[in-house]
Design a binder for these strands. Sequence first.
DNA 1: TAGATTGTTAATCGATTAACAATC
DNA 2: TAGATTGTTAATCGATTAACAATC
Lengths: 205, 205
Amino acid sequence: MPAKDVPDIVVSRLPLYLRALSFLAEEGLQVISSKELGHKLGISPAQIRKDLSHFGEFGKQGTGYNIQYLRDQLRRILKVTEEREVALVGAGDLGRALMHYGGFAGRGFRISLVFDNNPQKIGQKMGPFEILDSESIETIVADRGIEIAIVAVPAEAAQEVVDALVRAGVKAILNYAPITVKVPEGVHVQYIDPVIHLQRMTYYL
Amino acid sequence: MPAKDVPDIVVSRLPLYLRALSFLAEEGLQVISSKELGHKLGISPAQIRKDLSHFGEFGKQGTGYNIQYLRDQLRRILKVTEEREVALVGAGDLGRALMHYGGFAGRGFRISLVFDNNPQKIGQKMGPFEILDSESIETIVADRGIEIAIVAVPAEAAQEVVDALVRAGVKAILNYAPITVKVPEGVHVQYIDPVIHLQRMTYYL
DNA sequence: TAGATTGTTAATCGATTAACAATC
DNA sequence: TAGATTGTTAATCGATTAACAATC
């Protein structure tokens, strides 16, 4: 359904547009131009128009973009119109923080399973969920048809967890472990490592 | 000291090289070629060589790169040879997780101040630190000469916190709040929003 | 020496920007 | 209508890759 040859870098900006538009819609605003939106995001107006043009015509000459309409279109393009179930692996401090994070709701995601390999933790409650044994990732995640997972385990355990998730049919993994993991073609991985982000700035100090 | 015109995108990859090399050094390996390193990181060998060539000649023909040596050079280039003090703003679940995160030590950073604006929390202990009043960011961070901060507060409070940090002289901000913030020229911001990363993958599902 | 791999140049590829006709 | 802004084309800019002489 989506155009087959949209550059990844264009896709990577769409969530930023969506986030800004959702905020503007909450503020009750109706319309925004590429110029104004670009100013808010630090992106050129031409780039915003070009990015959106890969998916259709969403604006109106002389006026700009209807905020609610464009937001809804972006949700559709990014396939986050419904909340998708997410499996969380790792019930440490980070896992707990993610569990309690209020920012998933309304943006397309809902954590609905939590796994850990620590016998002390398995069977205990974290938030509304019972912590499940990591050994059961493959069967339970597959049964539930979950396609998205968040990995919040130590580096040493990450590849093994990712392998289990892949076998369970997961296609999108957000990896907090500070290691590059191997996945087969067709499985997507995004990385969050705060130290990497910090080191990207210290160069300029 | 660093070459003035190294592209940002090149700088952004250096921390990934450093992370991989540190891991390889811990494993006790001595030497690696651009081909092998590229394979581990999913980056072309030519790109690794080109990236490094912006900063000097670190390899040896026919052999590759001495792992410890290149690691040390990257630490120097990225200015993470010493541990730098980091101010953390936000003592919620995420702030606590960051506080307890063991991954900063040895990679150039050490959280050394924690702020929050909640009177219930101010004065309490979190980890080894007393939680300080956000009102005092400007004076305390400036006094300590801290240049790096992590913002882990709700979106509504983020711009205000960032403004205070900038006034305190902070030059590098890692922002976990789901909002694009305005900063003056010369102040660097990196963003971590798990939902953005997840939405970058749902497009492909 | 033969084999391997670097550092670098030139070619290719792709992304961003500028400009403007179309049009609301 | 006059003014504003889109969608798109073409030009520019920049990044990646291929190729290879140098050399360990």
